[in-house]
Structure formats: structure tokens, C-alpha cells
Design a protein around this nucleic acid. Sequence first.
RNA 1: GUGAUUGUAGCUCAGUUGGUUAGAGCGCUGGAUUGUGGUUCCAGAGGUCGCGGGUUCAAAUCCCGUCUUUCACCCCA
Length: 447
Amino acid sequence: MKPSIPKGTRDFGPAVVNRRNYIFDTIRTVFVKYGYQAIETPVLENLATLTGKYGEEGDKLLFKVLNNGDFLQKANREALAAGDSAELLPSIADKGLRYDLTVPFARFVVMHQNELAFPFKRYQIQPVWRADRPQKGRYREFYQCDADVVGTNSLMNEAELVQIYDEVFQKLGVEVEIKVNNRKILYGMAEAAGIASQFMDMTIAIDKLDKIGIEGVRREMERKGIPSAAVDRVEEMLAVKTLSPLKTLMADSETGLRGIAELEEFHRYFYTYPAGNAVVFDITLARGLNYYTGCIFEVKAKKVEIGSIGGGGRYDDLTGVFGLKGVSGVGISFGADRIYLVMEELELFPDRLTDSLQVLLVAFDVATHTYAFRCLQQLRSAGINAELYPEPAKLKKQMKYANARSVPYVVLIGEDEMKRGELTLKNMATGAQDQRDLAAIIAELSA
RNA sequence: GUGAUUGUAGCUCAGUUGGUUAGAGCGCUGGAUUGUGGUUCCAGAGGUCGCGGGUUCAAAUCCCGUCUUUCACCCCA
């Protein structure tokens, strides 16, 4: 048979994994610096945990896992006979692949609430799965890097999380714009326009603003049956670029005012920090995941068109659905796969990554090969990533291999070198070479 | 999920209105070069033209299905 892998999944070769790890390591380092601790959760969750958390669209994109054993015996016969997949599903699948890391985290917090110290800050770097139609930068299996904190309402957390965004993208050299908004402000808009019941319709339309323009948003809202007077009011508020005019525009909406106050509080914390990237209030930022209730964030790369490379926000009651009330959480997510594409396109990866081979030893014959093997061990003891070509093959062959591995240095070991105890160190980039003893070589390579 | 799009050597791609033995560059293997890769020269290997079916005397080329890629919508990282 011809080997293949499922749609929207990918293999990663050594060079790619090396670069991906560079991204993961950078993110991880910053997470840890801000006090977040790692956890991991299973790939598989109970479908009951996942369904209903991501809206109707999200439910459709959940990967369901067929029950083991003779599952048809327990299947809903009527639904099966009628060909009703939706009805049949609960009787044949009770597990699914995780869709994000936030919902499993909420589940984790509830299950382990007695073992955790609150506020609890955790980070998690694991793959998630969505049964979406793949495109560039959109896969069915992709990695998320999440940091969330639960058990604190302080807006300081929002400020810190945006700092993390800023710091990570500065370290990676990716210029970004970090958009900030507050779900309560969006709700305030709906209330001020007298269409609180059509909050979601309004939000979905607004979210498309940069794609379809203000006229498109108007049409979309009118199509959903929002009266044109209300649409006018919404449009008026959408034009606002700062918080202060909103206070009068949504003076009657208690929720809206609270949202404004929250963003102001966020700003008081955040602007104590010298951000390297643009952090902007964007009233049109909506975000689809409907569990968000407070501040929301989204990160866009400035020089590459690829959709958002990070997103997050505050969710007041995500643990509530699992039976733990009154625990508020806020978190952010990095889309590692999209960040990779951005960095690839902008050629931002360092030439030499830390976990690559530093030196290849080349021996000329059987006698020097065992001698070289001893040298190899000393290099490794000194913490140098080193490799000896496994047999004393023709020099040309070994050198070609060194080239293919793009090793910066090669150590040549022949009879002369072995007798004198001085090995030939060759710089592969310049072609220069000279004789040194092993200690000098170790010193050079450790530099 | 809806509508398009893509697939030819390891990679990037040619391949005429359907016509005999499907090509190039790069890469790969061997040699020129018995202690030196990345340059040069010579030689060589490598393809069920995504897969399955159909039309035709004849299909990489046309038709249908399917898988994959990419794109728009939807949604999102």
C-alpha cells in the first residue's frame, strides 16, 4: 500500500522540529518566568466535557472517537435506521479529541481543586484537533501554547498576559499588533442600541469588519433583522478609537460601563511596562469562542497575512459548568504552527539552533576510529554535541555527510594526528584548518 | 459543512489540437581526486504521470468518482 497520513496532519523532519522547538522553548521560558507551571492533559476527553463549550460550529468541528467493542449493540437503533447521525452519535461515541486547551484546563481545575493552590497559574503546550477544512496555516492537528490563571479577578493578570505576548514575540523577532477589547463593551453596545437579545448576531457581524467593511457589517446586521436605527447607533460606536467617548455613548448600560472600567484598570497596570509591540484597543475585536466574558485579546503578525497567531481572554464561569462556581479565569494562547509559518516567511529563524550538531569526527582507518571514539566521549563529556562517523569510510564520503548535516566543525583524525595527539580541526564554513590538542578543541567549541 | 482548485523523478517544474520509448534543473550514486565537503568535468540510477473506473485504434492530456493540496465562505490558531 501507499503510505499516507490523514488530511490536515503533517510529519515534521529534524530541521522543522528543531525550529519548532525553538518556538516552544522561547514561549516556555517566558511562561516560566511569569510563574506559570506546566501541566498536561489527555488527548482524549469525554465528549460530555467538550460539547456545548464552543458553540454550534465548534461542536461540528469536534473529532469524535468511536466506542470500542461491539458498539453497534448499544447503538440507538431508531437513529441508525433513520440515518440520523446526530441522534446516533451519543450512543456510539463517548470520547473525543480535545478542541483546545482551555476547556480541558477548566475540567482539570475542578477535578483537582483540592490539590491546587489558588490562584493557580498553569501553562500547557500540547496539540489540539479540529475537523476543519485545512488551508495554509489551518490544520486539523496543531499545537497550542496556553497560559491561564484561575482564582483571581485582578486585571493585573490581563496586563501580565499581554506582557507575555509582547515579550515572546520580541524574543522571536516577530512584529505584532496585540488587539484588546472587552466583551462587556460589546454587550454594552448591544444594550445601548437596544438589541441586547441579538448580541451574538451583532458580534459576529462586527467581527468581520476588517474583511467586509462597515457597509458589509450593516448589511449583515440588517439581514439578521436588526432595525436600522440600532445599526446606526452601533456604527456610531464602532467608529470610536478610544474609551472616553464610549462612556457617554453607552451611559445607560451598566455592563458596558463595567467593561470600560475594566479596560482602564488593565491600562493602568499595563502601561507601567515598556511594550515593544503595538497594543491597541479595538472595539471591533469580537472573538468567536463564546465562553469569554471580559477582556479579550488577539495577536496579528504585522508583515504576514495569516489570521491571528494568538488569542485569549477572561472567562468568568468556565469551571461553573463542571460544578465549581465563582472561579474566574483568564488566559492566552499562542498558535505555534502559524508562528512558524510567519517566521519561515520572514526568515526569522537563527541560522544555528542550539540543539544541532556542533562537530563531526572523521577517522581515516580502523586504528584511528577507536581512538576517535575515545575523543568523542571527551567532547560529549564537555557538553559538546558531537558525532563520529560510524565507520572509517572514504574521506570524501564522510566530508559529504558533514556537509549534508551542515556541521560547523569537523575534526579529522589520521595516523599523524593520533601519534602527535594533535587533531585537525576544520572550520567547514571557511575551509580553514589547523592542529590542536583535544583540550584546545574543546575550548574552541565551547566558546 | 458549501463552492472552487491542485497532483508528472527525492525537490521545483516543462510536457503542443489526445499519437510511438514522458523531459529539464537541482538533489542522489559512482568516477576524475588512495588525507578533505561545499566549485568544476564525466557517467549512472531513479517515474504504474495521486488512486480507481470510463471514453478512444490510442489517455499524463478528455469524462466520472475518490484521496490530497491550496483558496473563498463558515469558523478559527
